[in-house]
């Protein structure tokens, strides 16, 4: 099975769709977007500096790249681009906020798919650390954005004790007798995702949790399924 056909073509639509939006933003916002863009390229293994520079000029403006280099956030060596220590921390932070915002809009506020991009793009700058943590808790410490890219974990994600307050949580945080509706399934393990989907576990499906140990036993439609912990961690449900 071809998981990621030709990564270069598999562009995040944000790269193009929000192109116009980007240019209207304040400069600090554009720095953020620049970091976001580089992060996104690097996580897909595109480390060549020149194409990234071109993309950034096209999507944001001509100054951002130089500004990032000047303030010591990125390094260019043998035409290979990488973050500096500080750059990486700051970038992880902004990427995390952006992707949390995407999740929030899609899972909880149920904003139409087409609008998620542009709204998240503005919202991300309004989130301070405290709000970020609250959102993360609310969403059950999601690990993937709606596009299937990893959300850098924050401090709150290390101890997942507080999932009781969340609206969305992964199946492994449900207790026997609780029910939830699937909001999304982590897409990284492809065969597993396929299997779950063909068993009827798709966004919108109602799941009753019967048992959580030694395996998770859930009821989907009229079928009982047993799942191991690792699989349960990949299914995010909205509490009912």
């Amino acid at each position: 099975m071809k998981t990621n056909p030709n990564p270069n073509n598999n562009e995040n639509p944000s790269d193009n769709d929000i192109k116009n939006l980007y240019s209207e933003h304040r400069f600090e916002h554009r720095i953020d977007h620049g970091l976001c863009l580089i992060w996104h390229e690097l996580e897909r293994g595109n480390t060549q500096a020149d194409p990234i520079k071109e993309k950034m000029i096209e999507a944001i403006d001509t100054r951002v790249f130089d500004e990032l280099t000047r303030s010591g956030l990125i390094l260019e060596e043998n035409n290979l681009l990488e973050f500096t220590e500080t750059g990486k921390t700051i970038a992880a932070d902004i990427v995390r906020r952006r992707r949390l915002a995407e999740r929030l809009f899609e899972d909880v506020l149920e904003i139409p798919k087409g609008e998620v991009e542009s709204r998240a793009n503005e919202f991300e700058h309004l989130i301070d650390r405290h709000v970020e943590e609250s959102i993360c808790i609310l969403l059950g410490h999601p690990r993937e954005c709606p596009h299937g890219f990893a959300i850098p974990p924050g401090k709150c994600c290390a101890d997942k004790e507080d999932q009781l307050e969340s609206i969305v949580a992964s199946l492994d945080h449900f207790e026997p007798g609780e029910s939830g509706r699937v909001t999304y399934i982590i897409t990284r393990n492809h065969p597993q995702l396929h299997k779950l989907m063909s068993l009827g576990i798709v966004p919108g499906t109602l799941i009753h949790v019967h048992q959580v140990y030694p395996s998770f036993v859930i009821k989907v439609e009229e079928t009982q399924l047993a799942l191991e912990q690792k699989v349960a961690e990949n299914i995010y449900l909205r509490r009912l």
Binding site: Q192, L199, V217, Q224, A226, V231
Partner: peptide, 10 residues
């Protein structure tokens, strides 16, 4: 290893 996902018939 594959992940454990098993149907439990009545």
């Amino acid at each position: 290893n594959s992940s454990f996902i098993l149907e439990i018939p009545p």
